[in-house]
């Protein structure tokens, strides 16, 4: 058991899989000699060498295209897109190419690859380097989508993603890189499509993802301490496959549903979950489901504005309390 940062967990997760399987290769901008712009891949180049850890030019289409070509012919590439906002310059591969190739070819082509990317706000980088874009990936049939919130989950879900036979988008939250957590020694392998109840409770269910998980947990502690409200917090961890059974079972116990989403409001993942619960567990609910999201705006750079935009513990707690009291 050791305490590890989320940042170091990325390198450990990749190293675990590269040690296990020589077909796992890693490519991206500044990932090798420089150790990554977020220092999340330090040591991999030295450990695995330039043939397996390859620095690329600033060519996002070439990075994802090459990852796909390598995946469909037998390698298991991990590709880094430095900021998830850059998905927009290589979206053809994410939307049209690797998720559809298996279906279009009636199962002939396989694309076992992982695209890992720095997602989310908190770094005061402004509207093009701060977005939370899980829904861009979630809407595409053929992709799997994960977003871990702890160092342990980073390693376990990375292993699951690399070993998965389908293309997986792996969202790392930039504001979580410095956070720490306990991680056991030895190999860690998790399962895609499994949500985790990170705080049991009986009065309401809060669904959260990535950076919103610690914020929802903080809100839960406040609600308990200040108002005696006992909420259950679920870390979804994986949007595709989506563990709806854990969510539906929780709502059946608590009878209230809240989502906490970092994405701008329209078409956020919470909308899909609210729709599922409304459709399948309507009579379990004692009140309307509530989505707590970033407003539908581009993100500002100034810290006081960015902080105002994202859901925080205070806002989450306040919204839950008003709903339950109302």
């Amino acid at each position: 058991m050791a305490e590890l940062t989320y940042r170091d967990a990325v390198a450990r997760g990749i190293a675990q899989e590269m040690e296990r399987d020589n077909d796992v290769v890693f490519l991206g901008e500044d990932i090798g000699k420089a150790g990554g712009v977020f220092k999340a891949t330090v040591g991999l180049y030295e450990k695995f060498g330039p043939l397996r850890v390859r620095d690329t030019p600033i060519s996002e289409q070439a990075i994802l295209g090459a990852a796909m070509g390598a995946a469909m012919t037998g390698l298991k590439p991990i590709a880094e897109i430095m900021f998830s906002d850059f998905f927009a310059v290589c979206f053809d591969y994410i939307a049209n190419e690797f998720p559809k190739s298996r279906y279009m070819t009636n199962g002939q082509v396989k694309c076992p690859l992982v695209v890992r990317t720095g997602n989310g706000a908190g770094s005061r980088f402004g509207a093009q380097h701060s977005q939370s874009i899980e829904n861009w990936a979630m809407m595409i049939p053929g992709l799997k989508v994960v977003a871990p919130s702890t160092p342990l989950d980073v390693i376990g879900l990375m292993a699951a993603a690399v070993r998965d036979p389908d293309p997986v988008i792996f969202f790392e939250h930039k504001s979580l890189y410095a956070t720490k957590g306990e991680v056991p020694d030895g190999e860690i392998v998790d399962t895609l499509g499994t949500a985790k109840i990170v705080r049991p409770g009986k009065d309401a269910t809060i669904l959260a993802l990535a950076l919103m998980v610690p914020r929802a947990l903080e809100a839960a502690e406040r609600l308990k301490a200040e108002h005696g409200i006992d909420v259950e917090v679920i870390d979804l961890r994986s949007l595709v496959p989506l563990d709806t059974q854990t969510v539906l079972a929780s709502v059946a116990r608590t009878h209230r549903l809240f989502t906490v989403e970092e994405n701008p409001r329209l078409c956020g993942w919470g909308a899909e979950l609210v729709s599922i619960v409304a459709d399948e567990a309507f009579y379990d609910l004692d009140g309307p489901p509530v989505r707590i999201t970033t407003p539908h705006i581009p993100l500002p750079a100034a810290d006081i504005l960015e902080d105002l935009a994202l859901p925080n513990a205070e806002r989450i707690a306040d919204r839950v309390r008003r709903s339950l009291e109302g």
Binding site: A62, L64, G65, A66, M68, G69, P77, E97
Partner: peptide
């Protein structure tokens, strides 16, 4: 074109 590069990389 990039996809062909990836296959060649393999």
């Amino acid at each position: 074109l990039p996809i062909a590069c990836g296959a060649a990389w393999r």
